[in-house]
Measured scan of single mutants.
Amino acid sequence: WKITIYDQENFQGKRMEFTSSCPNVSERSFDNVRSLKVESGAWIGYEHTSFCGQQFILERGEYPRWDAWSGSNAYHIERLMSFRPICSA
């Protein structure tokens, strides 16, 4: 599993790669995730830290803005603060 997060939209700004769970992006000096690329595996992104709040399934691909992973939710969530890989047995 591999995911790359960015602190600006369209894959700009600070970037960081992960191959395992991140319970709080702010502990990695990110205020928020504004864009991301899922390089391999599937991940679950969460609205809040500690894997809480609205969940987003993140499959392999590029997500240049928050609405790319938020989709058409009843209330739009511009925040992604934690994530972890989906492990299959």
Rank of each mutant, 00 (worst) to 15 (best):
W1V: 12
K2F: 06
K2W: 03
T4P: 05
I5P: 00
I5S: 01
I5Q: 00
I5Y: 02
Y6C: 01
Y6N: 00
D7W: 00
Q8H: 09
Q8G: 08
E9W: 03
N10G: 08
N10R: 07
N10W: 07
G13Q: 02
R15N: 14
R15Q: 15
R15G: 11
R15L: 06
M16G: 08
F18S: 04
T19G: 05
S21M: 10
S21E: 11
S21W: 04
S21R: 05
C22T: 05
C22M: 06
P23L: 07
P23Y: 06
N24Q: 03
N24G: 04
N24I: 02
N24W: 02
V25R: 04
V25W: 02
V25Y: 04
S26Y: 10
S26N: 12
S26L: 11
E27F: 05
S29Y: 09
S29C: 12
F30Q: 00
F30A: 02
F30W: 01
D31M: 09
D31L: 08
N32F: 11
N32P: 11
N32L: 10
N32W: 09
N32H: 14
V33W: 01
R34D: 03
L36A: 15
K37M: 07
V38W: 00
E39D: 11
S40A: 15
S40E: 15
S40M: 07
S40R: 12
G41C: 03
G41P: 03
G41D: 03
A42D: 12
I44E: 09
G45C: 10
Y46G: 01
Y46C: 04
Y46P: 03
Y46F: 13
E47H: 05
E47W: 02
H48C: 12
H48S: 12
S50G: 14
F51W: 05
C52F: 10
G53R: 01
G53A: 01
G53E: 02
Q54E: 15
Q54A: 14
Q54I: 04
Q54W: 05
Q55Y: 07
F56V: 14
F56I: 14
I57P: 13
I57E: 09
L58C: 03
L58G: 01
R60T: 14
R60F: 07
E62H: 07
E62L: 10
Y63L: 02
Y63N: 04
P64V: 03
W66N: 08
A68G: 09
A68I: 07
A68Q: 08
W69I: 14
W69A: 07
S70M: 13
G71W: 08
G71S: 14
S72G: 13
N73T: 10
A74R: 13
A74Q: 11
A74N: 13
Y75G: 15
H76Y: 09
H76R: 14
I77Y: 15
I77Q: 14
I77G: 15
I77D: 12
E78Y: 11
R79A: 14
R79L: 05
L80A: 04
L80M: 09
M81W: 04
S82R: 01
S82G: 02
R84S: 10
R84V: 05
P85F: 04
P85D: 00
C87L: 11
A89C: 07
